[in-house]
Design a protein around this nucleic acid. Sequence first.
DNA 1: GCAGCGATTAACCATCTGGTGAGTTAACCC
DNA 2: GGGTTAACTCACCAGATGGTTAATCGCTGC
Lengths: 240, 240
Amino acid sequence: MLPTQPPETEAPSGRPRKPDAERTRREILAAARQEFAEHGLSGARIDTIAARMRTNKRMIYYYFGSKEGLYLATLEQVYGDIRSVEQELDLDSLTPSDAVRRIIEFTFDYQEAHPDFIRLVSIENIHNGKHLAQSERLRNLNMSVIQRLDGILQRGRRSGAFRSDIDPIDLHMLISAFCFFRVSNRHTFGALFGCDLTAPEQRKKHKRMISEAIVGLLESAASACNPATPALRRARSAGR
Amino acid sequence: MLPTQPPETEAPSGRPRKPDAERTRREILAAARQEFAEHGLSGARIDTIAARMRTNKRMIYYYFGSKEGLYLATLEQVYGDIRSVEQELDLDSLTPSDAVRRIIEFTFDYQEAHPDFIRLVSIENIHNGKHLAQSERLRNLNMSVIQRLDGILQRGRRSGAFRSDIDPIDLHMLISAFCFFRVSNRHTFGALFGCDLTAPEQRKKHKRMISEAIVGLLESAASACNPATPALRRARSAGR
DNA sequence: GCAGCGATTAACCATCTGGTGAGTTAACCC
DNA sequence: GGGTTAACTCACCAGATGGTTAATCGCTGC
């Protein structure tokens, strides 16, 4: 499809079989992601995954060993995706408050756009995170977010804009919680309260609300007694 | 066990069979709740549920028709529980801010104490809420929370303590999101960031943080430019 | 042109699993 | 005490499902 792809991504349809390990692996993973996200680990069917691609069911066992092996590979793939996109955010040029806002907006948009990721994480939690816990790769992968948040928090504290009793992990939890819930609990929440969380107006409103709540919290203790803050706040709103 | 229970809750162990429809239903539901919460709809095994109680597997079909029927009954039970406890909160005697705080703390504590509820809701979301959508009972059941929140919001607006652009459903979402996530994503979050969200200190800190963030948001726009608020705030903190 | 090997296919299997048919027991009513 | 019915038990099944055996294909090096 793309010229960067080595020899050929799409087999010329005349030839029925064309060994291409990389491509097969990719196809399996893509099919697995869909199926697992849709039905969960136990609800997913190996035969359905096999049917979703050109290759045979046997290939799944050839490459991934077992259903759980495939599931874990899917998890790793999906977690890898978000973190690698996250890296590209430029935050150093922003004020601490704006940097937090930027991260919130990124998280919000990414999770909104990737319900499969949310579903897979929910599913993994139903299994008590036991697969994820087995994977070294994943445990290390995620620390980068925390480090970035920590940097921003420290800058914010130094400038007097932020309070000092909230650590980066708490902050990350707050951000994730809001963004995640809107997607993960979309269906029950929507059905129970008769609202559509996917509607664009809701989306926009919630995004603003979440930002305000979290940035407000970070600024709150500081803003009550620190003379530097009103000026900062004015500067910030002028800049937007 | 209790004297209010009609004839006997526990069969005198000598007699092997003693028809008691109500008790059997209850036992099935209790077993189902455990099993479904633990393994999800497709992961749960009818045979395991049957094995967890004194009665036979056939009884499940006798009373609930199918696996999905039993699952729906479980959902209804579990949602009914939380809402009925919620009704008992006395909020009218509190200031709007304190009433919101009270609801947040209740939600936080309840969800913390009932992980099965959280798991079942997560599971139902994996199934796109399609079972819940079928149940009239559940769709009506939940409106009471919204009405109560609406009352509080209106009181808060009238007194100038709250801003006016946040509706009760948004507020409920904010509250649920925070509280829910801490429990639902406990495992992945814990594994990824090496922290234990069940630890008592974490629990206490998060509870305070969530309260501050949400109440802060509600008060924020009002507090910036409304002269009534500083007084109110002082009164409130004196009262605690 | 053939040995070696990774990639791939198709048929097959043991077991699990939701669901049921048919009969049994206890209580209640007349 | 006989008939009716709700509550209950037991054995069984058909299809689904994760996983496997064994054979084949096509490329690479010689």
